[in-house]
Design a protein around this nucleic acid. Structure first.
Lengths: 182, 182
DNA sequence: ACCTGAACACCGTTCAAGT
DNA sequence: ACCTGAACACCGTTCAAGT
């Protein structure tokens, strides 16, 4: 049975974290989060033992949506269209939180990371779209899901750099063309 | 006239910095550098007022070499070969120092950064190779030097991620194909 | 069962005091 | 001219003490 104050702190932390992470990115000061939430620093660590755990709670639904979106696109669009659109949406979603890409790529190698499951799920969703497009003859056959995840991550990372934001769509296209040569 | 102890400290700092940056990457602890160099922290800051200044001193020759290499390739190879080889060498050179790519991309936007000149020179060198390949009809014409710099940076960033190191050559190829469609 | 904040070991950066 | 290291304002993380 969770105590009422515990539940309240948990939720307040999430609300504030969304704010602070929006401002400062994935490397936001956890002290700041606790402070603004009006909560002791230890309380934050009790609810979210790692930064990844906090981010996971924050971004879970977004990740789930992206995975579901892949499944949806697989039935509603051509294999090319599906991959292009999904790639774009992944990048758009990841760019929301500056510095997130780096943590995600690292999380893929660390089964203990709270982001591990989400990242794996995302990669699996991408792999499905890729495999379908490869069966088509639409996508290069010398790529696997990890390569696709890497390429998406690379573009999302570019989007983190303020100067490149405006070029992001274009760079997405270039990478999409690389994956799906005409 | 530089005092003898000043010159000695400067050189010792560079030697040690090469070591520490090799181990810890571009975000290496400057305290560590000063400590290991047997020098006061203020002395490091006197010689290298910013982290970028230290890295610039450390990497200057490498950057110059890459720029010269571009000019050389422009005369000795086909426009495709030149671009592919240079892209590979840029990535290989940048990956040497973990976290460098991020600083370089940021430096391009900050004329006050000590890395600004080097990065601009690198971009200019790449632009030459790209322009030549575009005149050929070898390279996509909807890219400019900044896009090329971004793509190289993105791949170099992927190389920073331990898990993706082995795939780096392959990912280089993919991006090269994107730039130089067959 | 949960919360708090001091404590510890680190940062980067500045600057008064020394030689 | 140049060097030094204390001082300041931050971190992340842990954990004894409280309720």
């Amino acid at each position: 049975m969770v105590r009422a104050d515990a539940r309240k702190n948990y939720e307040q932390l999430l609300v504030v974290a969304r704010e602070v992470v929006g401002e400062q990115g994935a490397e936001a000061s956890l002290r700041d989060v606790a402070r603004r939430a009006g909560v002791g620093l230890g309380t934050l660590y009790r609810h979210f033992p790692t930064r990844e755990a906090l981010l996971e709670a924050l971004l879970r639904t977004g990740f789930d949506d992206l995975a579901a979106r892949a499944a949806e696109l697989a039935t509603s669009s051509s294999s090319r269209e599906a991959l292009v659109v999904w790639l774009r949406e992944c990048v758009a979603g990841t760019v929301e939180v500056r510095g997130l890409t780096e943590l995600m790529v690292a999380a893929m190698e660390d089964p203990d990371s709270a982001l591990y499951r989400s990242c794996k799920a995302l990669r699996a969703a991408g792999t499905d779209l890729l495999t379908r497009a490869q069966a088509d003859g639409t996508a290069r056959t010398d790529l696997d899901g990890t390569d696709l995840f890497a390429l998406i991550s690379a573009v999302a990372w570019l989007g983190d750099q303020p100067a490149l934001g405006p070029r992001l769509d274009h760079l997405c296209d270039v990478v999409a063309d690389a994956t799906l040569p005409r």
